[in-house]
Design a protein around this nucleic acid. Structure first.
Length: 673
DNA sequence: GAGCACTGC
């Protein structure tokens, strides 16, 4: 193949005249390897953050909110809570709560800190995530938890310090920041330490100062410890970044020294195509460069397949990992020296006018690009190849719009209501969602009987707010009492909450898996098919090898078991009976309609459906058992719809259209206007 | 007629 000529001259290789990215954090050095030979205390003191200990404590003393800006690896997650603990902030029954965006982060950090403090996990140092509470009400002083979990506990178990990892602005991060600002007005003794990316720090500062004065908050910058990463750009935009990514990876392999390659693309389809492109290069391999070990990484893979990316390459091999955004923050792979970034990401957006959510491929934000670049500098200096021209950087958004501005707010609004925040227009959002999203959510809640006409939470609304499921699913759980099918609805609720239940590989194995899946197929549709799969999983002893031979994801099935048992506790608490419908699928389907009545759809001659809410063609997702079949009645309800290239509906069940009428009158009045 | 980025309760 021809040598790559599209890079700016000399951008590749050390000492070159590099077209560097401007952001300072890409050029930070000073790395001290930790050694097991030195004491824990000595190791802690070697961390870059240690120099800032006194200053930090001084700030926490003086300001209500301290916004900490620091790099991954500077020690803020493990050290800050300990500094606060050592300085006495966890006395008199107070707890230092530290939130993490993900479950694995909360547990692994808690383990490390427990070790450093010399505590048993769950004693002085503990963690709380869904399904697992390894903490002690009396003794735990430092508690790591997911932000969703802290939000859920928000007003019931007050803590005195909260540390937040807010780079990834999940809905719960935003809700938490909003209510914590409010709580601080009532309880000024509560301290808040918020860790943020450089780009967001000043807007967070303004947010907390607004209405509270300049002494409310301060920004504190910490030094990180990353290796420098050079950044190279294309001269011209590329018409096909998938092909280009493969070309660049092959070029790196023939021209650069050792080090693994990580390629960022947007989805499974692109990943597979890129791997095919790379495979075509393999026969042209020349003796003096390493062989390539090609690996995919996305959430749809089994745990086993995901683990392969962590295994070091064999001698004479170089790993090329082609990944989705999962590798940007959720998963960290050591030994990556070269990053190839396509500059795009698949993002969910929400249109409140149509209540349609879309999955679109959009340019990454600047913050995201920096994060991807940093993946090349974790263990040694690296190079990041951005598959777009330098000029494109200016047109990129500074950071990704927070999730709260691009999602359905039905559940979050219900939860805010249950926390006593009634005047939603006055709620101080860090980033305000579109007013229409808030109105739509309220409207939906009124229609579902969760909120009354005056905007007050109803009795059932208060209960549903506590349930960790979507509102329509919660409605089914409650009406299962009338249809005497609590057992089955509980299972269905759990199964619809997990993703990637059926594992369908490509090629011949995929056809076999398809056959396996048909064994669970229920005439009535996908909900009952999921029910069959779950019951079979239980019947065959929740075995992982059984899952494997029946094309089911053991991970997904096990999660469904956990969710089901959690939801069961809520049903018992609310006095909902756990009756079985004894095979009466009609009752069960009627119960589904009680939750999904807004998602009714009619089959039309071309094989698509039309929603009761509009006349747009809805396409059946190919995973559905109704993909190839017309329902006898011509009507279905569906779990969700999403726009990609077309509008797809997923998880369908055939119904009698008359069942919709009981619910329909409400919708006629409200939604059509 | 053919496809799901990623979390979290």
């Amino acid at each position: 193949m021809p040598p790559l000529t599209f890079w700016k001259p000399g951008t590749v290789g050390p000492g070159s005249n590099l077209d560097r990215a401007s952001e300072a954090e890409e050029n930070i050095v000073s790395y001290t390897p930790s050694s097991s030979l030195i004491s824990i205390q000595a190791q802690r003191e070697r961390l870059p953050i240690f120099k800032h200990r006194e200053k930090l404590l001084h700030c926490v003393e003086k300001y209500g909110v301290v916004i900490v800006v620091g790099q991954t690896g500077c020690g803020k997650t493990t050290q800050l809570p300990q500094y606060l603990y050592e300085a006495g902030w966890a006395q008199d029954g107070n707890v230092i709560a530290c939130t993490q965006p993900r479950r694995v982060a909360a547990t692994s950090v808690a383990m490390r800190v427990a070790n450093e403090v010399g505590s048993m996990l769950g004693d002085e140092v503990g963690y709380t995530i869904r399904f697992e509470d390894v903490s002690n009400k009396e003794r735990t002083r430092i508690r790591y938890l997911t932000d969703g979990m802290l939000f859920r506990e928000a007003l019931s178990r007050p803590s005195d310090i909260k540390i937040d990892e807010v780079h990834e602005r999940s809905v719960y991060t935003d809700l938490l920041l909003g209510i914590l600002k409010k709580i601080r007005r009532k309880r000024p003794s509560l301290r808040l330490v918020v860790s943020s990316a450089t780009l967001d720090a000043s807007s967070l500062l303004e947010y907390f100062q607004a209405g509270n004065g300049p002494d409310e908050a301060i920004i504190l910058s910490l030094e990180g410890r990353m290796y420098p990463v050079e950044v190279a750009y294309l001269h011209e935009p590329t018409p096909d970044y998938v092909k280009k990514a493969a070309e660049v990876a092959w070029d790196i392999n023939s021209r650069q020294g050792p080090g693994d390659i990580l390629i960022f693309l947007t989805g499974r389809e692109e990943i597979d195509r890129c791997l095919e492109e790379l495979a075509e290069y393999l026969p042209t391999h020349k003796g003096n460069s390493p062989q390539l070990m090609l690996l995919a990484l996305h959430a749809g893979l089994t745990t086993e397949e995901q683990m392969r990316v962590f295994q070091p390459a064999e001698r004479g091999y170089r790993k090329v990992i082609v990944a989705t955004n999962i590798a940007e923050a959720s998963v960290t792979i050591e030994g990556i020296k070269f990053v190839v970034d396509c500059g795009f990401v698949k993002l969910r957006t929400y249109n409140p006018t149509t209540t349609l959510s879309s999955l679109a491929i959009l340019p990454t934000s600047h913050a995201s690009a920096v994060q991807r670049t940093g993946r090349a500098g974790r263990t040694s200096p690296g190079i990041c190849y951005r598959l777009y021209p330098h000029s494109a950087v200016r047109t990129m958004p500074r950071s990704t719009a927070p999730e709260v501005t691009r999602t359905d707010l039905t559940t979050p609004i219900l939860q805010l209501k249950s926390l006593g925040i009634d005047d939603l227009m006055k709620f101080e959002w860090v980033s305000a969602p579109p007013a229409e999203s808030v109105l739509r959510a309220l409207e939906g809640l009124v229609n579902a009987g969760m909120v009354d006409q005056d905007g007050a939470l109803t009795v059932v609304g208060q209960k549903v707010a506590e349930c960790p499921v979507e509102v329509n699913i919660a409605r089914m759980l409650f009406s299962s009492k009338d249809f005497r099918c609590g057992e089955e609805i509980l299972t269905i609720a759990a199964m619809t909450a997990v993703q990637n239940v059926f594992v369908i590989p490509d090629g011949a194995a995929g056809a076999l898996a398809e056959l396996e899946r048909r064994k669970f197929t229920a005439e009535e549709g996908d909900h009952l098919t999921l029910l069959n799969a779950y019951n079979a999983f239980i019947r065959y002893g929740k075995s992982s090898s059984w899952c494997k031979s029946h094309a089911l994801s053991f991970r997904a099935m096990s999660r469904a078991v956990s969710i089901r048992s959690q939801l069961k506790k809520y049903m018992q608490r609310f006095g909902l009976p756990l009756q079985s419908c004894e095979g009466d699928a009609k009752r069960l389907r009627q119960c589904l309609v009680s939750g999904y009545w807004r998602n009714g759809a009619r089959w039309v001659a071309d094989g698509t459906y039309r929603s009761v809410r509009g006349n747009i063609p809805l396409h059946v997702h190919p995973d559905s058992v109704l993909f190839t079949r017309k329902p006898k009645s011509g009507w279905v309800v569906f779990h969700e719809m999403e726009e990609t290239k077309k509008i797809n509906i997923r998880i369908l069940t055939e119904i009698d259209p008359d069942w919709l009428l009981d619910h329909g009158h409400r919708f006629q009045e409200k939604d059509r206007s």
